[in-house]
Amino acid sequence: MANQDQLSDVFATLRLRSDVYFRADLSGGFSILVPAERRLIRFHFVLNGVGGVRLGGDWVEMEEGDLVIVPNGAGHVIADCPDRAPVPLPDVLGGGAMGEDGVLTYGSGEGRLQLLCGYCGVDEAVDHPVVAGLPPSIVLRTRDLGHEPWILASLRLLALESGLAAQGMNGTLSRLLEILLIQTLRRVPPPGEGAGYMAALADPKLSRALSAMHADPARPWTILDLARVAGMSRAGFSDRFTRTVGLPPLGYLTTWRLLKARRLLRETDLAIDEIALRCGYASLPSFTRRYKAAYGIGPGAYRRAERPR
Rank of each mutant, 00 (worst) to 15 (best):
Q6M: 13
F11H: 05
L16S: 08
R17C: 06
S18R: 04
D19E: 12
R23L: 14
A24C: 13
S27V: 04
G28H: 11
L33G: 04
R38K: 14
R39W: 01
L40A: 12
R42M: 06
H44A: 13
V50Q: 12
G51Q: 05
V53P: 00
D58E: 15
E63W: 00
L67R: 07
V68N: 01
P71M: 11
N72T: 04
N72R: 14
N72H: 14
G73L: 06
A79I: 01
A79T: 02
A79D: 03
D80K: 05
C81H: 08
C81A: 14
P86N: 07
P86M: 07
D91G: 01
L93N: 04
G94Y: 01
G94S: 13
G95A: 11
M98T: 04
D101C: 05
V103C: 12
S108H: 12
G109P: 07
E110V: 10
L113H: 04
L113R: 01
V122D: 00
V122L: 11
E124A: 12
E124Y: 10
A125T: 11
V131T: 09
A132C: 03
G133F: 01
G133Y: 01
P135D: 09
P136D: 13
T142M: 15
D144C: 09
D144V: 02
L145A: 06
L145Q: 06
L157R: 15
G168H: 07
M169A: 14
N170E: 13
N170C: 02
N170D: 13
T172P: 00
L176Q: 06
L177A: 03
I182F: 00
I182G: 00
T184A: 08
R186F: 03
R186S: 11
R187I: 10
P189T: 07
P189I: 00
P189D: 11
P190H: 06
A195V: 12
Y197K: 01
A199D: 00
A199W: 00
L201P: 03
A202I: 03
D203H: 09
P204N: 14
P204C: 12
S207E: 08
L210E: 03
L210M: 13
S211C: 12
S211W: 00
A212F: 04
H214Q: 06
A215Q: 12
P217L: 09
T222I: 06
I223V: 15
L224Y: 05
R228V: 12
A235S: 14
S238V: 04
R240P: 02
R243E: 15
T244D: 05
T244W: 02
G246Q: 04
L247E: 11
P248I: 00
P249T: 14
L250V: 04
Y252P: 00
W256C: 02
R257Q: 15
R257I: 09
L259N: 11
L259P: 01
L259E: 10
K260E: 13
R262E: 02
A271D: 13
D273R: 14
D273Y: 09
E274W: 03
I275P: 01
I275H: 03
L277R: 14
R278V: 01
C279N: 08
Y281M: 08
A282T: 13
S283A: 15
S286F: 05
A294D: 03
G296N: 06
I297D: 00
A301L: 10
R304T: 14
A305D: 08
P308I: 11
R309P: 15
